[in-house]
């Protein structure tokens, strides 16, 4: 580094990258500061980087009636853990079969998965099938099952498995191992990195998922964090536009969460994911650059 000459280009690069980083960071800083801003200041001055009279009342308010947010946290943690494990098991076993030369139907099954990436019935038929025939309305499974076994993930996993020398597999077969044994004792121990990468991505997806809840969940007890957040927002917005307000909402007007409460809830919700990203950053970046260069 000491030997490197400082050229105009590197200076420009640093400036631009720094500005872009700032642009990525500023909204988060504003979120933090708005969670510490009191209501009067919000109305009078608006959100600024440093609140004049910082207050922790928003956090107090969140933790005073913690039932809703704790419940939502519980739901999010549950679907993230169960969903990630299930997805890894299903995708890993499927990818193992698809990467296996002994699997007679691997072309057909690959196409079977692949086709769904190109064509779908559309969201309305999907919604009909899930609610009418699979009975997923207000069912925690609606939050867990849909993201499982995404063809993209299966193929990504298969790409990683192709990197494991197939001769190991053959050697184990000659020694008389069954396919199950090869899966558990040969491939699984060598596939820890892809499992970690895909696992992290899946967990991120579950933690941030709101789509399934939006479609299928109406019972507030089953709200994951994101949906809780979304509903607080919708609730406040609705009250702000008073033309939408009806008598039923007006009764609860005393309990309107202020902007800072929402901000505080947001921070509580994104905290775990950002922290775990800081831990897994290396694997994550590796996963992108490696997964990008296919075949």
């Amino acid at each position: 580094m000491k030997k490197k000459k400082v050229t105009t280009l590197t200076v420009i690069a640093h400036v631009v990258l720094f500005l872009f980083s700032l642009m990525c960071l500023i909204p988060f800083i504003l979120l933090v500061s708005s969670s510490f801003t009191n209501r009067e200041e919000l109305v009078k001055i608006g959100i600024s980087f440093f609140p004049h009279e910082p207050t922790v009342s928003a956090y107090q308010a969140v933790f005073e009636h913690p039932i809703r947010i704790v419940r939502a946290f519980g739901v999010s943690i549950f679907i993230t853990v169960v969903g990630t494990i299930l997805n890894l098991v299903v995708c890993f076993t499927a990818a193992f079969a698809l990467s296996n030369h002994n699997f007679v139907f691997r072309r057909q099954v690959s196409f079977y998965f692949y086709f769904t990436m190109m064509f779908g019935g559309g969201i309305i038929p999907y919604y009909m099938v899930c609610t009418r025939y699979l009975h997923l309305s207000d069912n925690i499974l609606a939050l867990i099952i849909p993201p499982i076994a995404a063809p993209m993930t299966i193929f990504l996993m298969r790409t990683y498995l192709y990197d494991i020398p197939y001769t190991l597999h053959e050697a184990a077969k000659i020694d008389g191992a069954s396919e199950y044994q090869v899966l558990f004792h040969v491939v699984l121990p060598l596939a820890r990195t892809p499992l970690a990468i895909i696992g992290f991505n899946t967990a991120l997806g579950y933690w941030n998922s709101w789509y399934e809840a939006l479609l299928f969940i109406t019972d507030p007890k089953l709200y994951p964090l994101q949906t809780l957040l979304q509903n607080i927002l919708a609730y406040v917005n609705m009250l702000k536009n008073s033309r939408f307000a009806n008598s039923k909402l007006m009764e609860n007007i005393a309990s309107i969460p202020s902007t800072s409460i929402i901000a505080a809830t947001c921070l509580i919700a994104i905290g775990p994911m950002l922290l775990s990203f800081l831990f897994f950053q290396k694997q994550f970046v590796y996963g992108i650059t490696n997964g990008a260069v296919k075949e």
């Binding site: 098991v89 559309g122 099952i145 899966l183």
Partner: peptide, 17 residues
């Protein structure tokens, strides 16, 4: 081994088709 994924995809992608 591939069956669970096949079933899931069938229910959630092929049935809606």
């Amino acid at each position: 081994l591939v069956l669970p994924a096949v079933i899931k995809v069938f229910l959630f992608s092929y049935l809606p088709m």
